[in-house]
Design a protein around this nucleic acid. Sequence first.
DNA 1: CTGTTAGCGCATTCAT
DNA 2: ATGAATGCGCTAACAG
Lengths: 337, 337
Amino acid sequence: MKKHQVTIIDIARQLGISKSTVSRALSCHPNVHEQTRIKVLKLAEEFEYQRNMFSVNLTRKATHTIGIIVPEFNRSFFPQVIKSAQEAAKDAGYNLIIAQSDENYQTEVTNAKLMLQYQVDGVLISLTKETNNFDHLKQFERRGVPIVFFNRVCDQIIAPKVIVDDYEGAFAAVEHLIETGKKKIAHLTGPETLKVCNNRKRGYFDALKKYDIPIDEELVLHYDLNLAQVRIYLNHFLAMDPRPDALFCVNDPTAVEVIKLLKAKGIKIPEEIAVVGFSNDLVSTFIEPQLTTVEQPIDQLGRTAVALLVDQINRDIANWKAHTVVLKTNLIIRASS
Amino acid sequence: MKKHQVTIIDIARQLGISKSTVSRALSCHPNVHEQTRIKVLKLAEEFEYQRNMFSVNLTRKATHTIGIIVPEFNRSFFPQVIKSAQEAAKDAGYNLIIAQSDENYQTEVTNAKLMLQYQVDGVLISLTKETNNFDHLKQFERRGVPIVFFNRVCDQIIAPKVIVDDYEGAFAAVEHLIETGKKKIAHLTGPETLKVCNNRKRGYFDALKKYDIPIDEELVLHYDLNLAQVRIYLNHFLAMDPRPDALFCVNDPTAVEVIKLLKAKGIKIPEEIAVVGFSNDLVSTFIEPQLTTVEQPIDQLGRTAVALLVDQINRDIANWKAHTVVLKTNLIIRASS
DNA sequence: CTGTTAGCGCATTCAT
DNA sequence: ATGAATGCGCTAACAG
């Protein structure tokens, strides 16, 4: 049971001044006598006064709060993005409300509502793998709340997007496999709903084309990113004759799972099958052999997304810009290829 | 720039009724005509009305929101706890505000303030490794805001705590090492400020005692949990003569780092040195050899913490209970020992 | 520089 | 079953 909350009125009464003056003193308003300000600050400290954000945000038009919706918390990727976004937000004078959708469309819709209820000034979002309806996001537009996509973006909503150069990264990864002499390169990717996956797939195809390697659609498998399913798809590849001598995986957890399975079967990596991932997750150096992967500038991703969002917030709604920022990736070659 | 927000007044005006009725219809108040309620709900839907949480929470005494403060986002541990806490909170009708302190005392203080400003009904907290002053937490008590510690707890504040049985888990781990024939077991642990670490250390000592192995304080090293430092401490152990034949590490990331370093030196695991961790982090199966570790019931941890907190919230402040819930651990033996 | 006044959006008395 | 009135804590005009 909460006790009575200390308000500016308590401070005002005690000091025999008006609550407006207290409010001004507390919020660094210029027009306050220095002596008064000191007295107010001192008493506020003594009373352990804390501003009631609900009151503040009800009064002001802006809440100086931005929301971030991420699809999951299982990999280290999104917590890392959140961390950098939080720093950037703080630097820009914004609070950050975090919500995770558990790769579930309905939860994402609920989270979107939550952001609206909390009157965020803007939203950062990365979609769940299930999301293919975007009505819940159009609502932001209608309400004049800017939105910035990152990582898991979509084309159906016009808004700024921050992604890494998935195409380029995948291209470089596959090119690297080709250069190391691999002839039959398979690709295990995620759901077709995810644009990240499709971009990486394009990179895969184009790298093959560049070296005149015939495209074989059989060598590309889509799965739902549920790691427990990986063995099914891997077995499918292994049953081919001749079997692939390299496997480019859509992300690091997938690649690590593949390596674990291959090792269990006694298949030599990279001699028999080379494996490459995407992300440079922490796990990529824990596995043996260490994973060749495409590094993403996570910190930059979070910071850029916040910067773009803050830019939108300060802009007139009519002038929203919807350009896409593409961050460079970096191929890290390790022992798995 | 935000557009005009739809309020209950807009709905009331459109329907030619009072905002009180709209408010009642929207919040399932019994005393409202069924026809009226339907009309209101329909229009609210059409207008895409969203309740303004700032207004709601300013009006009500309780915000139905709980805060969670975690020390870091780097390991998978805390995001996992948050995920389960969020589920439990939702089931109990609470929203969750997430804050991470970046292992930084000052940030933790700021986060605590933030929770107060957002008028949370209660707080879940796991301390940073730096925290040894608790004034910022006493504030919760003074304000009548219940607090529940989890994982990184402290004795100085009287409040419910949820921890795993660190002592038992460590005891079992070390006992296992002894049973596999290890004679000189070293322990690399975290800062002495962290009670988790001390409990694990006690388990380490008592297991040795049980088997009449003389305690050697030289074999216990404290470090700041910054993985980059691990090599220094490991080298110290390796320089001993005879050198330890087993190393019990305070957590999995530490153990994984140790394994990587030992492998780089060509030291055989577990033959020359066995390694055991604590947590059963995701990484523990990625490393080669796979890591023997003490599993913690993360999901249960988050859910229990929320349950205890909600219990406190619904209790009169005078009746706060401060018992500690200790969850069972489970030793998972893998190839590193 | 300071006090007065008027809301922000909603829930909740108290009337009717 | 509904409406009118009040106030939550604060900021922001508007006066002085």
